[in-house]
Each structure stands twice: as structure tokens, then as C-alpha cells.
Design a binder for these strands. Structure first.
Length: 653
RNA sequence: GCCCGAAUAGCUCAGUUGGCCAGAGCGCUGCUCUUGUAAAGCAGAUGUCGUCGGUUCGAAUCCGACUUCGGGCCCCA
């Protein structure tokens, strides 16, 4: 019997009998790998385990505990979900069911316009567990489109995909290896077969560590004009431990939910009377916001920005000039009709900053001119998109517009990146992701030259910082390319915060000019940039990042002073007053409740330092210091504590 | 905007198949207690049961519309 030789990932060769499959190889390497293996990676291409190997193939075995393995598990679990639903709802049809981050979903249409309910999930899960227990094989078959259409006769969405593929369009859902001539299917039982590009786990027994999470509506093919399908989301993992860990992470995220913490900590609220997407900041929330804003202002002052202030309303003519009414009218609040025109709440600050630039003749000597404003804007976000502080209708941007010459652009962007990162790092963010969005030729203004110049300036400054970045082709705004910066929070989630955008459009529209050194009139380039993005959103991210445990410099209340008993009240008041004089945010609670109770309340408010003062302290001028997350310390001299708190505030830790 | 779900005291929630004056804990107010590091005791006040309309002898409970919120879709200058 002749042999074939394949190459393993470590570069070693392995001989196998001719006709051996991927799983044969896995078993040959080790029995355990043979049992665990989910799919193979043959010459870089994912394949089922049953695929025969050829001489010279490079083969990698994909175990469950790998990114590809998890991906496969999720994809296969989606099929199990589909089988369960189709069995439980006779007449139901199915659309697509891909793996996603942490899980999968599947879209269905139920007969007679039925919908899923949360309590259906348990029933579906039970059915899925039966399927897992049955260890059904995933058997691949390939059909030409005509036969595929016949097989999917009762499933119009599948047929639509088949026709799409047959027409040569790409779809992640089906195999179209040979120009749409063959469509692959995976059959589990006589009654269940799903169209799919695969590969899949060998049999359903490899699955089972899943949980259905929620139901939702989703447009077919993501198109508002298409029917609304019923989507079920689930999560799936390689083993029980991973699943439990994931559910724990979700729990942790839920505990950190800024909407819950903002409420519990009395930071802000969204009164119904105000209407959707509008927040009121309570004293404690506003205290944090003030620190954030003060810090931002100071940094901008140090960074060479000049402060401006502009109104919340403007005549519609301004937004015609800026183009907002052409491009974003849907996202703007409707106008108020007044004697000399229609006035709109501003959705952005830039047009007004352009008016400031245009006022008076500008010289190249003034550039770069950096105008900064904590500018409050209003955007009409659609009702269904609102989400706590993360998506809101009225918010304040830490907004600045930089007007510079073409020659200054690259340096300006480079120093801007330093500036952004330095400010974000002050809030303990350490990991950043950068995205460079480039031109969409169909939806943009400006000459090729200037786009190339600006994109190169952005790219060069990213390179100069030695950071990795992703390029999002065609994702730029119509007026210029941009860099978006995401931060990773304390539990590993990513949030998009900062943006640096180049704009050729507004200087044109507002006919901005400066006088160059040779006396000629030149058009400046404009940069839009925001670090926090929206103060509201940034605050929401901070709440979740810190789980409400704001570091001392940000904490709404930095310390709460508690007298052990009424006798010590005067001393507690004295301590409180002195700390306030020293510039700290201090609270005092009178001794009407037992000390333990008052400590508990202060702990729940996540106060960095609880200061307990009793007879010993009155005598010696000391404090009992109970730090958040630390051990109680006694007999701390007052001045020592002041020094300690000041040091901590200065260090911003 | 679209699909599904929800809305009861300041907060978190209970309220059976529609049936006396609508409940609990926390918080709040008052009194007692005067406390050394995560819940003292007693008493009290607090609700147009999201809003409007309908069904019914009777609605927190059933139906409809609206508002707001939650999970998604779409969108996000």
C-alpha cells in the first residue's frame, strides 16, 4: 500500500497510508487529539475531518480550545438550534445562522407570523440537548443549484441565497468554490439538512456547552425594506468551564452597567418628563463631570488651544452652508420658525468655529489655530437606538477644530496623537486600538491629491507612533479621512472614544482663507478632533471601567467623616471643614445611626476613604482611616492623611 | 423607525383565575439608643398602579393607542 506524506505545523513530516483523512492523521498523532479534533486546516483552508489528504498537504488539526475550534462549535451549534426550532415549529423556515463573537445566532420566520418569546428558549434548549445527546453526524453533500433549490423547496430565504450564489455573488453561508456551480449542504438526520459552506464538527456530541441568550427581530439581509425575521442569539463554548466563565463575565458586565450604577450612586437620571435620550446630572454626577471638564480644559490650555463658546441654536442658513442640512437633516432636530428664518439646535460645533475663523483676516502666522469648546449638541437619534449614556440625544463634546496649512498637517496630527493618548492614559486606559478610515470614492468631496496627502499624514503619524492599526477602506466621512481610537476597559471590552478627522470640505464651503508668507491667499485644512468624544458617553465608559469605584481624583465624594458618637461630632465637623478647606470633596454623616450602619452606607457609595473619629482621635488629633478595598488604619495624624489623599489625587490613581 | 418584552411608593420588587380601604424591604420623617469599622429599636408619612381611551356590576390585572425603558435590527456627521 502506498503512502503519502504531509507536513505538520511544526514543519515535521508525517507518512500516512494513502486515502487517510484528517481525522486519521489526528489519531495517528495522538489518540486524544483524534478524539478531540473538530476540523482540519489543510493548506490554510478549513476542512471537515473526513476529508482525504493528498501527498504534500500541510495539515493542522484544530482542537476545540482554539479560535477556529470555537468558531466551528458555534457554527455547528447554530445548526442544532435550527434543527430544534424547525422541529418544534412545523412550518417554520430558516434564513441564516452564522457564528459571531462569543456565540451564534439564527434567523427564522415562524408560520402565521408567530414570534419567539423568552420562555420558548428553555424548550428549544431542551430539544437541542436531545440532538447533542444523539451524536448526529454532520454529513457533507454537494448539489448543483437546480437540485439545491429543489431540496430547499420550502425555504424561500435559502432559495434566495442559492440564487445569489448561483449568480456568482459571494455568501458566507454557502460554498461557492467553483464559481457557484456547487452548493454544499450538511445533513444531520433524514429530516434536517442545512445549506452551509462548513466545515462542521464531526457529530453533535462535540457540542453541548451552550446557552440561548435572547430573542430579537432582525431584518432579512439587514435591510429595513425586507421582512423582519425572528432571531435567536446563543453562546457556545468548548467546555463547561468556559461557558461558566463567559456567563460570569456577562454577570460582571451587568454589575458594572452604567445605567444601574448611575442610578444606585445617584449620579444622574433620565426623567421620563424630559423625553428619551436626555439626562439630568445630579450633584454627585456633576461633581465627577466637573473634574473631568476641569482636567480637559487644563490640558487643552497647556496644549495650545484657545477657548471659544458658541450658541445652541443657529439659523438654518448656517447648516446649509456647512452641508449638514444636505447630508444629515434626518439626524437633526426640526427647526423652530422665527421672524427671520428657521433655527435649528446645533448637531455639531464646527460650523460655528468656522465662523470664528472667518471673522477677520487670518495670517499664516496664526496657524495652527486651535479652537476648543465643550460644545453641547443635539442629534435626533431614532427612538430604538437610544442606550443610556452611550447613545443619547443631547450631549457635550470636548470638541476642537484645528486650522492649519498643508505643510503643518503631518506634525499637527502627530502631536495630536500624543495629546489624545496622554489624556486618555490619565483615566487609566492603557490599551488602544487605532482605525484608519480611507476614502469612499462614491461618497466624498475633494481632489485626489489632497485625500492622498491627508491619508498619508494620518498613516505616517500612526507609523511614527509605532502602533498597529486597521485600515477601514471607504469608511471615511465624505469630507476627509480619519483615525478613530478605541480603548480597552478593565474587563477587556473595547469602546470607541476619540476621533481625529481631516476635513477639506468645510474650509471650502465657508471659503476660509489665510494670507501666506508670500502674500497669497490660501485655504487652510481643518482637523476635527474629540478625545472623550461625548462627555456623557465617556462618563458612562468610566463608570463601567471603574465599576463605580472612581479613583480619588474623580470620586464624587472623596471621604466621608463619621463620628463614633455624638460627643465626637464637633471634632468630626472640624475635620470635615479642614478637608474642605484643603480642596477635597468631603461628606459628614451625623451619629444618628450605629457606626456599622453608616460605614456600610458609605461603602455602598464607593467612597475612597471613610474617616472614623472617636475619643482617641479627639484627644490626639488623629483619624481612623478606612480605605476602599483596604484595611482599617487607626491613629493616623490628620496632616498625614491630607498628604496621602493629596498625593493620590495628584497621581490620579 | 422596525420586531419582542416591560412599566406598581424615592429605590428594588411582590400582587394568584378581574372582587373589601394596594403590599414588603431599603430609603424618608419623628422619638429612643450614643455607638471604634459593612444593617440598633419603635412609630409614622408616602402611590391618579406610566398616560389616555375601551370592555365589565367591578380593572394594577383584559383590549387598544400613546409615552418611556430593556434586548436586538437598521442607523450613528
Amino acid at each position: 500500500m502506498s503512502e503519502i506524506s504531509v507536513t505538520l505545523p511544526d514543519g515535521s513530516q508525517r507518512s500516512l497510508p494513502e486515502g487517510s483523512t484528517v481525522v486519521d492523521l489526528a489519531t495517528a498523532i495522538s489518540r486524544r487529539l483524534g478524539k478531540e479534533a473538530l476540523i482540519g486546516l489543510v493548506d490554510g483552508k478549513e476542512t471537515d475531518l473526513g476529508r482525504p489528504l493528498q501527498d504534500g498537504d500541510t495539515v493542522e488539526i484544530v482542537p476545540p480550545d482554539s479560535e477556529r475550534g470555537l468558531h466551528t462549535i458555534r457554527h455547528s451549534t447554530a445548526h442544532v438550534l435550527a434543527q430544534a426550532v424547525l422541529e418544534l415549529w412545523p412550518g417554520a423556515t430558516f434564513a441564516i445562522g452564522p457564528p459571531i463573537e462569543d456565540g451564534f445566532y439564527y434567523d427564522f420566520a415562524l408560520p402565521n407570523g408567530q414570534t419567539f418569546h423568552e420562555d420558548d428558549l428553555e424548550r428549544i434548549e431542551d430539544k437541542m440537548r436531545e440532538i447533542v445527546k444523539a451524536r448526529q453526524p454532520f454529513t457533507r453533500t454537494e448539489l448543483v443549484p437546480a437540485l439545491a433549490l429543489e431540496l430547499m423547496a420550502n425555504h424561500p430565504y435559502k432559495q434566495e441565497i442559492i440564487e445569489m450564489v448561483a449568480a456568482g455573488e459571494k455568501s458566507s453561508e454557502v460554498g461557492s468554490e467553483v464559481g457557484g456551480e456547487v452548493i454544499s449542504f450538511y445533513r444531520n438526520t433524514d429530516n434536517f439538512v442545512d445549506m452551509c459552506v462548513g466545515p462542521h464538527v464531526p457529530h453533535t456530541g462535540h457540542l453541548g456547552h451552550f446557552k440561548l441568550m435572547n430573542v430579537a427581530g432582525a431584518y432579512w439581509r439587514g435591510d429595513v425594506d425586507q421582512p423582519m425575521l425572528q432571531r435567536i442569539y446563543g453562546t457556545a463554548w468548548a467546555d463547561k468551564k468556559q461557558l461558566a466563565a463567559h456567563l460570569l463575565r456577562l454577570q460582571e458586565a451587568e454589575k458594572r452597567d452604567h445605567r444601574k450604577l448611575a442610578n444606585d450612586m445617584d449620579l444622574l437620571s433620565f426623567p421620563k418628563e424630559l423625553g428619551g435620550g436626555l439626562a439630568v446630572w445630579h450633584p454627585k454626577g456633576a461633581a465627577v463631570r466637573k473634574v473631568m471638564e476641569d482636567y480637559s480644559r487644563q490640558r487643552h490650555l497647556d496644549g495650545g488651544y484657545e477657548f471659544v463658546v458658541t450658541p445652541n441654536l443657529a439659523n438654518g442658513g448656517l447648516f446649509e452652508t456647512s452641508g449638514h442640512l444636505d447630508f444629515y437633516a434626518d439626524g437633526m432636530y426640526p427647526p423652530m420658525e422665527m421672524d427671520n428664518g428657521s433655527y435649528y439646535p446645533k448637531p455639531m460645533n464646527c460650523p460655528m468655529h468656522c465662523l470664528i475663523f472667518r471673522r477677520g483676516q487670518r495670517s499664516y502666522r496664526e496657524l495652527p489655530l486651535r479652537l476648543f469648546e465643550l460644545g453641547t449638541v443635539y442629534r435626533y437619534e431614532r427612538a430604538g437606538t437610544l442606550h443610556g449614556l452611550m447613545r443619547i440625544r443631547g450631549f457635550t463634546q470636548d470638541d476642537a477644530h484645528i486650522y492649519c496649512t498643508q505643510e503643518q498637517l503631518a506634525d499637527e496630527i502627530t502631536s495630536l496623537l500624543d495629546f489624545v493618548l496622554s489624556v486618555l492614559k490619565a483615566f487609566t486606559f492603557e490599551e488602544f486600538t487605532f482605525n484608519l478610515s480611507t476614502r469612499d470614492p462614491d461618497k466624498s468631496v475633494g481632489s485626489d491629491d489632497i485625500w492622498a496627502l491627508a491619508t498619508k499624514a494620518l498613516r505616517d503619524s500612526l507609523d511614527r507612533h509605532g502602533v498597529d492599526y486597521q485600515v477601514k477602506e471607504g469608511d471615511a466621512a465624505f469630507y476627509g479621512p480619519k483615525i478613530d481610537i478605541d480603548v480597552r476597559d478593565a474587563i477587556g471590552r473595547s469602546w470607541q472614544l476619540s476621533t481625529i478627522q481631516v476635513d477639506f470640505n468645510l474650509p471650502e464651503r465657508f471659503e476660509l482663507e489665510y494670507v501666506a508668507s508670500d502674500g497669497s491667499r490660501q485655504r487652510p485644512i481643518m482637523l476635527h478632533r474629540a478625545l472623550f468624544g461625548s462627555i456623557e458617553r465617556f462618563f458612562g465608559v468610566l463608570i463601567e471601567h471603574f465599576a463605580g469605584n472612581f479613583p480619588a481624583w474623580l470620586a464624587p465624594i472623596q471621604s466621608t467623616v463619621l463620628a463614633v458618637a455624638e460627643d465626637h461630632q464637633p471634632y468630626a465637623e472640624e475635620v470635615t471643614a479642614k478637608l474642605k478647606d484643603a480642596g477635597f470633596r468631603v461628606d459628614m454623616v451625623e451619629a444618628n445611626d450605629p457606626l456599622g450602619k453608616r460605614i456600610r452606607t458609605a461603602k455602598q457609595q464607593k467612597v475612597p476613604y471613610i474617616l472614623v473619629v472617636g475619643a482617641d482621635d479627639v484627644e490626639a488629633g488623629t483619624l481612623g482611616v478606612n480605605p476602599r478595598g483596604g484595611k482599617v488604619e487607626r491613629d493616623i495624624p490628620f496632616e498625614d492623611f491630607v498628604h496621602r489623599l493629596q498625593t493620590e489625587v495628584d497621581a490620579k490613581v
